[in-house]
Design a protein around this nucleic acid. Structure first.
Ligand SMILES: [Mn+2]
Ligand SMILES: [Mn+2]
Ligand SMILES: [Mn+2]
Ligand SMILES: [Mn+2]
Lengths: 218, 218
DNA sequence: AGACTCCTTTTGATTAGCCAAAAGTTTAAT
DNA sequence: ATTAAACTTTTGGCTAATCAAAAGGAGTCT
């Protein structure tokens, strides 16, 4: 059995590089887990010892296929739990991430299978992130960030790439919900801002925030 | 925040003495948690330090009211989770105890409240154990163990005081489910056995096993 | 090449929890 | 009053995970 700590390290490595295309820097991993770089280094060694990552000292770390498989399963548990909390228990999408962060380490496969059945084998979680299937395959979509849209574009919101409670509450309050169609009214690179409309409402976002919102053209 | 370990110690102390009427022996506590007596002693000291238990060395340990309150909340989480797993996710009563043993430490009050609402504020878990209310009060019932029943008694099964998966499967297979009415056909103290009938079926139990089944007269 | 910056790794310590085995206590039996 | 049995506590040691701070490596700029 893997400890919660190990599962969190594997999951972070996966989320920092979902396709396994780059080496993740120790500092980047440490930051995402809110530990010191030294802690990350020592855990990386442990994981390498266990064959879950490959480590090139001073360059970076990468999941092995064994490590990736385990990470994907943690992500599956996280996302199914999130959707379950929203759809079955009626919780707000802004508060389920923290809860899932703990539950992902203790819910059994049996429970996950039953939640998945009850939910009708959903493909995406409440934030638009794909839910890996039991065999580890991930649905893929090609999305564009809102920050790359142009004036006049009509797009549908597909994913919110920021799990922060405050950010999600803000999004909700301003009608930025999954599936909603919005129009880009104005984009100003100099002012670093973008203005969109949704159901009459006009919202101005900085481009950094807009970069966390992913959309599909309609 | 209490660690899972501390929560398990508090819960065990509560379950070994729900009414706070005796001092629990170190060895008894150690056995119920499957740790060595020395481990229990050192945790007892930690808990005493934190004001959660009172310890009279060489005699025993007892929850303080603060410790008891925390313990009761762990028990509430455990039992609501168990009932939720059975009633909402359709799991078997024989497998939910292990699952709840983990979940009790991570589900938030928010989740417990929502599960409780969805379940309609149930008074008992799938094994017939009382579910403490959010304010810490416990429903009480006066039950009798099956081993104390006499020939000819007609009783209804109210509680199974053994969470072991195999035992619960055996009970289920033999129609010993909560609410079922059974008749005591024969009791033989010498042979240490009791024979009962349920829906045509005749079942023989040793008195130790019968002592784990609690009933109400009908 | 030398110096500098920015990382990463190493070192040394700490904390929670656990165990094995030695030492101590209580109670009961002679 | 001794002794023995049964239990509890203490001691010493281990592992997982963490941090602060010292030391080391890689790449860049002059
Ligand atoms: Mn999440
Ligand atoms: Mn987590
Ligand atoms: Mn239980
Ligand atoms: Mn537990």
């Amino acid at each position: 059995m893997l400890s919660s700590t190990v599962e969190n390290y594997l999951k972070s490595l996966f989320l920092l590089d979902p396709r396994g295309e780059k080496e993740v820097a120790t500092g980047e991993l440490a930051k995402s887990l809110e530990v010191t770089p030294g802690s990350a280094t020592s855990m990386i060694k442990t994981l390498a010892q266990a064959g879950l990552v490959e480590h090139r000292p001073h360059y970076g770390v990468r999941l092995t296929s064994q490590g990736r498989t385990l990470a994907v399963h943690v992500v599956r548990r996280h996302r199914i739990v999130e959707l379950f909390l929203v759809n079955v228990l009626g919780m707000d999408w802004s508060e389920v991430h923290e809860e899932a962060e703990q539950l992902e380490h203790v819910v059994s496969d049996e429970v996950i299978t039953r939640m998945d059945d009850l939910l009708g084998h959903p493909s995406h979680d409440p934030h638009g992130d794909p839910i890996p299937s039991a065999d580890g395959t991930l649905p893929t979509r090609t999305l564009q960030t809102l920050s790359f849209c142009n004036e006049g574009d009509n797009v549908s919101i597909a994913r919110i790439g920021n799990q922060n409670t405050e950010f999600l509450k803000f999004a909700e309050d301003n009608g930025l919900l999954l599936g909603r169609t919005i129009t880009i009214k104005n984009k100003n690179e100099i002012a670093d801002s973008i203005t969109i409309t949704t159901h009459e409402k006009e919202v101005v976002l900085g481009l950094a925030a807009a970069g966390k919102i992913e959309v599909e053209h309609v």
